[in-house]
Amino acid sequence: MAEHSATAEALATRDQAQERPAAQGGRLTLGWTIGLIVPAVLLLAWQLAAGQQWIEADLLPAPVTIAQTFWAMAQDGSLANDILVTVYRLALGFVFGTVAGTVAGMATGAMPFARRLLDPTLQALRSVPSLAWVPLFILWFGIADTSKVILIAVGVFFPVYLNLMAAIAGVDRKLIEVGRVHDYGRLRLMLRIQLPAAMPLYLTGIRGGLGLGWMFIASAEMMGANNGLGFILTNGEEVGRPDQIIVAILAFAVLGKTTDWIVARLAARLTGWQDKLSAESGA
C-alpha cells in the first residue's frame, strides 16, 4: 500500500516536472524584461553611491550626469552627426568586405583548384591582428575615410569568406546530382543549389563579419579621426570627460545590438526552410 502511494507520488512529481517546460514557454515572452532587472538595480545603486560621493565623479560620473551629457550631445546635433559618420564608414566597409568575401568564398568553395591556390595566403593574412593593419593603412591611404573603410572591409571579409567557402564546399553531393540529372551547368548549380544550400552558414558569416566590423571601426576611429563615435572616446579621454566616453560606449552597444538584430531577423526569414528544432536561434 505504502509502496503504491510512493509510486503515485513519484508519478505526480514527474508530471509536474513535465509541466515545467510548458510554463517556461509561456514566460519566455517576459524573458528580455527579466534581463533588465540587474542593470536597473546596478544603476540605482550607482546613482545612490554617486549621490553619497562614494565614487569620484571625475572618474565615474553619476547616471544622471551621463543622461544630461547625452541630452546635451543630442540637442546640439553632435551625437547624431558622429553616429552618422561612424555608421557611414561601417556601411561602406561592410558592403566592400561582404562583396569581396562572397566572391572569394564562392570561387574557393566551388573550385578546389582556386581553394588550393588562394586559401593558404588568405589564412595567413587572417592571422594578422586587426590593429596591426592600422598604421600601414594610414600610411597608404591617409587619415581620411579610405583607410578606415578598408580596415573594416578586412574585418568583415574573413568571416564571410570562411563561412561561405565551407558552406559551398560542403553542399550535399546528392543535391548536386539532382542538378546534374536536370542538365544544370556550373552557373545554375551555383545559383539554384549551392548558394541557397549555403545560405544559413553564409548569413552566420555575415553576422560575424558585422560584429567584427563594429570592433574594427572603434579601433580605426580611435587611432586617427576627428569625428565619429571612436573619436568621442579618445577625445573624452584627452579632455577628461568620462561621461562623454560612456555615452559613446552606450551608443556603440545600442547600434551594434540593433544592426545584429536586423541581420538575425533577416537570416531567420531567409532560412525558415531549415528543419530545425527551434526556428529562432541566437539573437
Binding site: K174, L175, E177, H182, R188, P196, T271
Partner: peptide, 30 residues
C-alpha cells in the same frame, strides 16, 4: 541519350529543402 530526355528518381527524395513542393517540381523546367 541527352540529359533532357531522362527523368531520374533516387532512393531518397533529394528535394531542395528551401523550395516549396511546387517549386521543387518545377526544378527541371527552367
Amino acid at each position: 541519350i541527352r540529359p533532357a530526355e531522362v527523368g531520374f528518381v533516387f532512393q531518397e527524395p533529394r528535394l531542395m529543402p528551401w523550395l516549396s513542393v511546387r517549386r521543387n517540381i518545377a526544378f527541371g523546367l527552367g
